Simulated scan of single mutants.
Amino acid sequence: MPDRKLLDELYRMRDLDGNDDDLERFNDILNELSHRASADIIPDLCRMLEDDVIEPSAAGDLLETIFYISDRCGIEESMRYLALGVPCLFPRAEGWAVRLHRMLLHADRPGAPYIEAYSAALCGIPARALRRVVNMLLDIKHKQPELYADKVNRFLMALMRGEESEGGCEPVRN
Rank of each mutant, 00 (worst) to 15 (best):
D3Q: 11
L6H: 06
L7K: 09
L10N: 10
L10K: 11
M13L: 14
R14L: 00
D15L: 02
D15W: 08
D17G: 15
G18I: 03
G18S: 03
D21V: 13
D21N: 13
N27T: 09
N27V: 07
N27P: 12
D28L: 08
I29L: 02
I29W: 00
L30A: 02
N31G: 13
N31S: 14
E32T: 12
E32W: 00
E32G: 04
L33A: 02
H35P: 05
R36M: 09
A37Y: 01
A39N: 08
I41P: 12
I41S: 07
D44R: 09
L45Q: 07
C46P: 08
C46I: 03
C46Y: 03
R47S: 11
M48P: 06
L49P: 10
L49N: 12
E50G: 04
E50W: 09
D51K: 05
D52R: 11
D52H: 12
V53Q: 03
I54K: 01
E55I: 13
E55Q: 14
E55V: 14
D61R: 15
D61H: 15
L62I: 05
L62H: 07
L62M: 07
E64Q: 14
E64H: 11
T65S: 10
F67Y: 06
F67H: 02
Y68M: 09
Y68H: 12
S70C: 04
S70W: 06
S70K: 11
C73K: 11
C73D: 10
C73M: 10
C73G: 04
G74T: 01
E77T: 14
M79N: 03
R80S: 15
R80H: 15
L82P: 07
L82T: 05
L84T: 00
G85E: 04
G85A: 02
V86Y: 01
P87T: 01
L89E: 12
F90G: 02
P91A: 01
P91Y: 03
R92M: 14
A93Y: 03
A93G: 05
G95N: 12
G95S: 13
G95E: 10
W96R: 03
W96L: 05
W96H: 04
A97W: 02
V98Y: 07
L100T: 00
H101Y: 13
H101T: 08
R102A: 02
L105H: 01
L105S: 00
A107R: 07
D108E: 08
R109V: 00
P110L: 15
A112W: 11
P113D: 09
Y114D: 05
E116S: 07
A121F: 08
A121W: 05
C123H: 15
C123F: 14
C123M: 14
G124Q: 04
I125L: 12
P126L: 01
P126T: 03
A127Q: 15
R128E: 11
R131A: 13
R131M: 13
R131G: 03
R132Q: 10
R132F: 04
V133T: 08
V134E: 11
N135M: 09
M136R: 14
L137P: 06
L138M: 15
I140N: 05
Q144K: 15
P145Q: 06
P145E: 06
E146I: 02
E146T: 07
E146V: 06
L147C: 08
Y148K: 00
A149D: 13
K151G: 07
V152D: 02
M157V: 14
L159F: 09
M160A: 10
M160G: 01
M160T: 11
E164H: 01
S165E: 09
S165T: 09
E166L: 13
G167F: 11
C169Q: 07
E170L: 06
R173Y: 11
N174P: 12
